[in-house]
Design a protein around this nucleic acid. Sequence first.
DNA 1: TTGTATGCGTTATCAT
DNA 2: ATGATAACGCATACAA
Lengths: 339, 339
Amino acid sequence: MKGTPVTIKDIAKALNISVSTVSRALRNMPEIHPNTRKAVMKLAETLDYQPNQLAKNLARSATKTIGVIVPNLSYYFFSAALSSIEDEALQAGYSVLVCQSNELHSREMINIQNLLRGQVEGLLISLARDTDDCAHIERLLQKNIPLVLFDRHVNHLDAAKVIVDNHAAAFKATEHLIEQQCRRIGFLAGPPNLLISSQRLAGYLAALEKHGLASGPEMVFHCDYTPENAVAQVLAMTRQQPDGILTVSDRVAFPAINALKKAGFRIPDDLAVVSFNNEPNCEFLTPSLSSIEQPIEQMGRESVRLLRQQMETEGELLPKTTRVFDTRLIVRESSLRNN
Amino acid sequence: MKGTPVTIKDIAKALNISVSTVSRALRNMPEIHPNTRKAVMKLAETLDYQPNQLAKNLARSATKTIGVIVPNLSYYFFSAALSSIEDEALQAGYSVLVCQSNELHSREMINIQNLLRGQVEGLLISLARDTDDCAHIERLLQKNIPLVLFDRHVNHLDAAKVIVDNHAAAFKATEHLIEQQCRRIGFLAGPPNLLISSQRLAGYLAALEKHGLASGPEMVFHCDYTPENAVAQVLAMTRQQPDGILTVSDRVAFPAINALKKAGFRIPDDLAVVSFNNEPNCEFLTPSLSSIEQPIEQMGRESVRLLRQQMETEGELLPKTTRVFDTRLIVRESSLRNN
DNA sequence: TTGTATGCGTTATCAT
DNA sequence: ATGATAACGCATACAA
């Protein structure tokens, strides 16, 4: 017996007033008499009245809820981002509904369907690695559903975005390797269709070119982000005799470095390594791992702000702002040679 | 212009039938005529009808949503657990509302309030480290709100629980260290009030006692899970000249081992280490880290199942089952000595 | 300042 | 097999 929850009707009956008065009192509307308000408040308190959000939402047709879809919460980047997203949303009075796509385009579509059924007012999406066809996203844009793309996006979509300057970051990281006397620098990339990966690839190539260093596809190896594949690809790369490696993510750098060490390479002396994401554990590896830090918390907060802008301005179409954040190279042992 | 969403009323009007017929057709009720059903379905399709979940829920007073509260999603254990929780819930037709307590008792209470307002039908909670006073949980139990405590619980609460046998796990890990010829084994524990930590402490002490090894409070050091504090405590421990260390979690083991290595200790030869959680990165440390593996996915799924049992059996009080899972010690380099 | 009536979109209970 | 109509709990325009 869950004990029928108390409603404003119960309060109204007990106080011999109308439900509308109770409703107004509860919401602190100015027009109602201090005494009645006090009485209502008090009774609500003692009865432990809990407003039914469902009814509230239905009546106002507004849910104060945003939906978030990320590829996988066990990736550091996304779980960290979600912390700030949730925080920012809660402060603004929104609830957060979280889904994982598991990097699957199909799951992403299902999630979107579910969230819209659940009546979220806006969507914060970081696309699945699997996602090439963005028809489902374009449908959202057409329907004018508030939407912010976060980190994982695609270029041709005209949506609000919160991203980092991956090109500049990779450029910076590569130049750092060059400064450390690396002359044959390899790139352990992600899947070719993953935008952040290809942007980093472009930045890497640009840096090589600027410094007149040979650069060809023979130094670029794509992996699918699994540890096994990362190891296989980086070992394949060693046949090209690199003296420096840029990896697309700490998640692939960790197993790759481990394999390199086992294969007898000394890091950073034989092979200097710089990575992306600056996960907390970078510090605890041996050698500690140099990595590109992204302002995750800021990015999370900014995403929510952009989304609120869209949700809270009725009708009028906002320009699709793209917020690009800068990154910071954290230099650690893996790329610091005693020159 | 978001274009007013189409409702069953629209469909009814267009087809010149009543809303109830439409409603029934849409829900595949047996009594309605195949032809009308077909017509309704077809029109719903072409009009891209999306049922309003809010109204549905209000009418049935059922939300098909469960709330999950975890201390922090950027802890591997919880993000991994959430993956399976979400999966299992989705399969059963439930949505998942996720909140983080940030290890704060106060935030935990707010989250519970919010979730109940949002009309979740059940709650899956992993208590904040901060939580001593469980009055808020007991209130849920009294109100008979479906609830499952997950991993982080407290003994005196009579609630459904999904946990691991921490005592046995610590016992097993400690015996392994003893087999590796460790004779002075320290325990880098969590905060004293954290149940999983004190259970592990008890298992550790029991193993020492069984093997007739000295054990006193001078070998137990509590840390607050921050890297800095973990380092400070483990360095303090070294003054007791341990030859083996059990750590309460990989999260504290990573920085601790790093500090030990910097302080000149060889692992495992001077100091063998076993930890808890078996995070993926255990494998990529140098030396790789021995750790207790918990069946996270199974635990997540089982939690949802237990919760569904409660949610889906009206009224009758179910016994508060406690499901205890076994763990597995994954032995790696950090505790493997060449005897 | 308060009450009445109606609507939000759907389900459920009567009828027919 | 279908239709009216009343819930569900709250908000709100309009009256009083």
